[in-house]
Design a protein around this nucleic acid. Structure first.
Length: 645
RNA sequence: GCCGGCGUAGCUCAGUCGGUAGAGCAACGGUUUCGUAAACCGUAGGUCGGGGGUUCGAUUCCCUUCGCCGGCUCCA
């Protein structure tokens, strides 16, 4: 038998008989690798360990330590789930079951819904199948024959997939009773699945099309070790504890009320303080950076939205227009047209550019019921919006300033990780975009060059640009590693043209300005939600609604406590004197649960020495401090907007 | 909007195989005057999300509607 030459990742090459499998290669390298091996990469393609290698090729053995390893493992776990489902619920018709970032799911069509109890039963069955150590057996079918087989099994969803996607001879995987049209690869057998859990059952639609079959999606996750699984489950628990909807209620920050309608936010006094601090900071920064603050109406003639094009392409996201004196008015879903009208209010000279109009603009967008989510997805929200009108040669500088501003936001609010995406046009479909090729090249070049010049790693997203221009999106990553899209910087070639924007250049002629739309926080509501979750409600001192709780030991100490409160208030600290007739322990507990940064205990000792006993919410008793010393310290923390102390 | 689950006191939840509901915390009144995460006693509080139907009788069963939760889809 002829030999094949296998090149391993370390560059060494070895000869094997033709038709050698990945498993045999692994065995030849070492028993440890053989035991860990899940699949193989042969000449760039992922294949089963059992797949014969017919030609000279580079070969890499996939193990749990490679990222593809986990993906394959979870994909196989999804098959294991489907096998268990078919054992217990023969009336279920499998749809698709891929791995995801956090686990896997499998979709089924079935008349009766799955229940939580069913999940427990399925887990038990999956355990049994793991014990049975069933192989993931790869089989091949000619398309016609395979199709008939799946038809006989009544698996109409699979049949549809085969018809659409299958090669003339396609592969399938058999695991117990479950046979799946699947490209693979898979792990060798179910016995290799170590730690998994079914998490939830939810509705889905065949191919994501809401008019197609309603399916039931069973979500699960799988890890190589119980430890990893437990860590993941603990993270889910942690996320639940941080849920801004729950904290918003517990800390009395905001509410959403049935009587008012879904997706509409009521900022309570404590949330209001935080918003005011955010906005005050932002306004100061805007002014320092040469933005002009403007205000525009919340409802404007529908005609305006016809000019802008929103009435057409954005109609699905707008509240319906309202009749006023035989005219129609539209609640604004965006701020751009308002800013454009200000731009157009008189002839602009190149000397005025770049003109940066900023507004904390409250907009209303119609969101389908069922998509609202706390503060993160709402129907009324305030954008920290700005539109920059500039000359083409100024635009790179403006983009850079926006990005730097966005970084300042991250730093100020205590985020140290972020991801950047550059969305550009799809060069294959030039006709679907507004603006000329030259404009697009200028804009994309400006965005890309800026990122490169600033040494910012970014993910290129070709084809992801919106029709009116390319954009940079910045996602921040929160304390427990979740990304949130907030900042966006986008070019707009559409509106300047539609509204006929112009400026008089130094040449005395009329030119069309470049328009950049940007929001840093995105929406104040969403940003607030992210902040709550990031800090788990324990805000930095400068944002805390109550910065210090003053706790007199008994009624006797009320006099001194009032003095302390007054002095701190005079230094512009937000303090709360808790003079309730409760035990000190109870009041400490309440302050602690309210995540108040400092508790100041005052009794005889403190009154005598003009001190306060400081308790920190994070580390507890911090000992006595002179009142003026504490005041100075707190003031400094606030003024520097410290996120840690 | 679609699929599934769920709406009981301000909050967290129990309960009724159909006979108009109960706890803890919060609130209020009193007692207690306290040194770093829950003092004690008492009072009040609910047309059991809204509407309709079945029934002698509905919080419970059915229909419908609103809202919430988990997804799908979409997005700041």
């Amino acid at each position: 038998m002829p030999n094949v030459r296998i090149t391993l990742p370390d560059g060494t090459a070895r000869e094997f008989p033709e038709g050698v499998s990945g498993r045999e290669v692994a065995q030849a390298i070492g028993p440890r690798l053989a035991a860990e091996a899940l699949a193989a990469r042969v000449d760039g393609r992922l294949v089963d360990l059992s797949t014969p290698i017919e030609t000279d090729a580079p070969v890499q053995i996939i193990t749990p330590s490679s990222p593809e390893g986990l993906e394959i493992y979870r994909h196989s776990s999804a098959h294991l789930l489907a096998a268990a489902v078919l054992e217990l619920f023969p009336d279920a018709h499998p749809g698709v079951g891929p791995p995801t970032d956090t686990g896997f799911f499998y979709d089924f069509y079935r008349e009766k819904p799955f229940t939580e109890d069913d999940l427990a039963k399925l887990e038990t069955k999956m355990q049994e199948l793991v014990q049975a150590d069933l192989p993931y057996e790869r089989v091949y079918f000619p398309k016609g024959e395979g199709l008939r087989l799946f038809q006989q099994k009544g698996e109409f969803l699979k049949c549809q997939l085969i018809e659409e996607k299958a090669e003339p001879v396609f592969s399938a995987y058999r695991t117990g009773k479950f046979l799946d049209f699947c490209r693979g690869p898979h792990i060798p057998s179910t016995g290799r699945v170590k730690a998994f859990k079914l998490l939830s059952v939810a509705g889905a639609h065949w191919k994501g099309d809401e008019h197609s079959y309603p399916l039931q999606r069973i979500y699960g996750t799988a890890f190589f070790s119980k430890k990893d699984l437990d860590e993941f489950l603990a993270k889910i628990e942690e996320a639940k504890k941080r849920d801004h909807r729950r904290l918003g209620k517990e800390l009395d920050l905001f509410s959403i009320q049935d009587e008012a309608g879904p997706g509409l936010i009521f900022w309570h006094p404590k949330g209001g303080i935080i918003r005011k601090e955010i906005e005050d900071w932002l306004r100061t920064e805007l002014q320092e950076r040469g933005y002009d603050l403007v205000f525009t109406p919340h409802a404007m003639r529908l005609h305006l939205w016809e000019i802008s094009g929103h009435a057409n392409f954005y109609r699905e996201n707008m509240f319906g227009p309202m009749e006023v004196e035989n005219d129609k008015y539209q609640l604004k879903p965006m701020n751009c047209p308002g800013h454009i009208l200000i731009y157009k209010s008189h002839t602009r000279s190149y000397r005025e550019l770049p003109l940066r109009l900023a507004e904390l603009g409250t907009v209303y967008r119609y969101e389908r019921s069922g998509v609202m989510h706390g503060l993160l997805r709402v129907r009324g929200f305030t954008q920290d919006d700005a539109h920059i009108f500039s000359m083409p040669d100024q635009v790179e500088r403006e983009v850079q300033d926006c990005i730097e501003f966005a970084f300042l936001v991250l730093k100020t609010f205590g985020f140290d990780r972020y991801e950047v995406e550059l969305s550009t046009r799809d060069p294959r479909n030039p006709e679907q975009y507004a603006g000329t090729i030259e404009e697009w090249e200028l804009a994309e070049g400006a965005l890309k060059k800026t990122l490169e010049r600033m040494n910012i790693p970014f993910k290129a997203m070709p084809g992801e640009a919106v029709f009116y221009g390319p954009k940079i999106d910045l996602k921040l990553v929160d304390a427990i590693g979740r990304p949130w899209q907030l900042t966006t910087v986008q070019f707009d070639f559409n509106l300047p043209r539609r509204f006929g924007l112009e400026y008089v250049g130094s040449d005395g002629r009329l030119h069309t300005p470049v328009m950049v739309h940007r929001a840093l926080f995105g929406s104040i509501e969403r940003f607030f939600g992210v902040l709550i979750e990031h800090y788990a409600g324990a805000f930095p001192l400068w944002l805390s609604p109550v910065q210090a709780a003053i706790l007199p030991i008994s009624e006797k100490h009320l006099g001194y406590a009032r003095q302390v409160a007054e002095e701190l208030r005079a230094a512009k600290l937000r303090v709360h004197l808790d003079d309730r007739n409760e035990k000190l322990n109870a009041r400490i507990r309440d302050a602690q649960l309210q995540k108040i940064p400092f508790m100041l205990v005052v009794g005889d000792r403190e009154a005598q020495s003009k001190t306060v006993s400081v308790r920190r919410r994070d580390t507890g008793d911090a000992g006595a401090k002179r009142l003026d010393e504490f005041k100075g310290w707190a003031r400094e923390l606030i003024d520097s907007r410290a996120t840690k102390w």
